[in-house]
Amino acid sequence: MPKCPECDADVTVGGDAVKGEIVACPDCGAELEVTETSPLALALAPEEEEDWGE
């Protein structure tokens, strides 16, 4: 099972995942991009630019 590069938690990815799909780490919420499906590989997804304040 792949690990989150941010917090090292186990990340479950569906069997139907496709390359380019973005999944979230269940613990820290880091957004991870599926860079390969066989074997499964994850990398931090590019950040969105827009944000919103408190």
Binding site: I22, E31, E48
Partner: peptide
């Protein structure tokens, strides 16, 4: 959505 007349916002990238 904006092009269709609805303004929404994000909550993380996805």
């Amino acid at each position: 959505l904006q092009d269709r007349g609805v303004l929404a916002l994000g909550a993380g990238p996805t």
